[in-house]
Design a protein around this nucleic acid. Structure first.
Lengths: 258, 258
DNA sequence: GGGGAGAGATGCCGC
DNA sequence: GCGGCATTTCTCCCC
């Protein structure tokens, strides 16, 4: 049995008036609303944009977020975050969705020449995703297994705060020289090196030190970043982010179940 | 008339077998597929994640992109980019969508306890969004109106390439001292300052110069970034990104049509 | 709300 | 493909 059955409405090729009525109900009741339509979209706020006629999926979430998706790509072509106010109207036989936010001031207007379907439904979801393998997990792994950095590395703290930023792992080497470790879960780039440099300089200044070690821990590093790293006397240590749920698979085995 | 009418199927509360059949058809024909279901999701690849039972919207695009959305937030809770291979099956009365990519090796498995609806349809969209107000537009505006930076600024080039990055606007002041301008379309942060610093140092080294001007052009700058900027002898110039489609509206007037 | 930084970031462009 | 970087980035966390 589907307990949400009563709170689910599907309208195939509705008139603009019928679509407007269903959509208004969905927005008012904080249902998920999905529309397929041939439409234009105009955005004005943090930037300005216009998208001419084409078939798109329009998705209004219970939290007022709205997403407009084209036929390709992971990212919506237009969107509004939550805290958006929606207004539905019919102008010249077209269904118009006007969405606006106060801060920052921005608005999105979707004009639908043809609605292929409208669909509203109640959704219930209290779960939060559990993820492993983030940069924070890398820092924790290094904190617990300092030999991943070097034989004599002694970690002291994680997420150390400075005015110039947060330090992933902080400690010292066998000679007592302070060591700052910056973790990157993928390839370290120039930004990672300047970030590390900023922390090292800040600590040197704050504590009046002449020498502070800087280490980038990542699975790999770009060529220019490596050069800049060496210019500044820092070190690179190859470290893979931890994955607990499953062992990393070879390319071949990933498609094995097909 | 809706010419896509024939290529649109809506199934309300289908059995797992029926849902599988429709979904397979949609995937094979490269239609847009939208499913509402009570499901779990398990991801393994660049990281690892698990999401327990809840109602979600699953959207498979014609380009094989798949997005899973919860009831709130702009971002999908799970997703796969294009170049994904999808496999549909029924296991213990549950509809299972297995999606895998080769590079990087990653897979997503969605197990649906209950399918609220499945919906497949053809979509046609050849339009590309037109946007104004990007950082590149800011650079062009400054290049054409150098007085936005200072009375004596003479721009020479845009998108100047160095090994350590791309310089937004490059020129010199009235005394012939080289000037590097870094544009930010929103608040400039510490990263923007280190980015500018990287370019200035690189140019100094490459050309054997003692002094090179550094300017950040942005609508605003964070307090710490301003301090770091001044420490390095750089300058901040308030510049708004250009918006051509509409004049920027006051907060009050944004909601005027409601 | 500002500030700082990560993200399974994605997307774009250049080499 | 890698590299460098912007994004209406979004999201989280801390002050």
């Amino acid at each position: 049995m589907d307990k949400l059955g009563d709170n689910l409405k599907l309208e195939k090729q509705p008139t603009a008036e019928k679509a407007a009525k269903v959509l208004e109900e969905g927005i008012n009741k904080k249902y998920a609303c999905i529309i397929s339509a041939n439409c234009t979209a105009r955005y004005s706020g943090r930037a300005e944009s216009f998208l001419d006629l084409g078939d798109r999926i329009i998705f209004i979430k219970p939290d007022t977020t709205v997403l407009i998706h084209q036929t390709s790509g992971s990212q919506p072509v237009n969107w509004m975050p939550n805290n958006t106010v929606h207004n539905v109207s019919v102008k010249k036989d077209k269904l118009v969705l006007s969405s606006a936010r106060i801060s920052p001031p921005e608005k999105l207007e979707v004009e639908m020449d043809q609605v292929h379907f409208v669909n509203i439904m109640e959704m219930e979801d209290r779960e939060k995703i559990q993820t492993q393998g983030s940069e924070k997990h890398m820092a924790e792994m290094i904190y617990k297994n300092p030999s991943l950095i070097s034989k004599d590395f002694k970690p002291v703290s994680m997420e150390e705060q400075t005015k110039y930023g947060f330090i992933d792992v902080f400690g010292h080497d066998g000679k007592g020289v302070l060591t700052i470790v910056e973790c990157k879960r993928y390839s370290a780039d120039l930004g990672a090196v300047t970030q590390l440099r900023r922390y090292v300089e800040r600590i040197k200044k704050d504590k009046g030190l002449k020498k502070v070690n800087g280490v980038i821990a990542a699975p790999k590093i770009s060529s220019n970043a490596k050069k800049m790293l060496e210019d500044w006397g820092f070190k690179f240590k190859m470290v893979e982010p931890p994955k607990h749920f499953e062992e990393k698979k070879k390319k071949q085995s990933i498609l094995s179940n097909f």
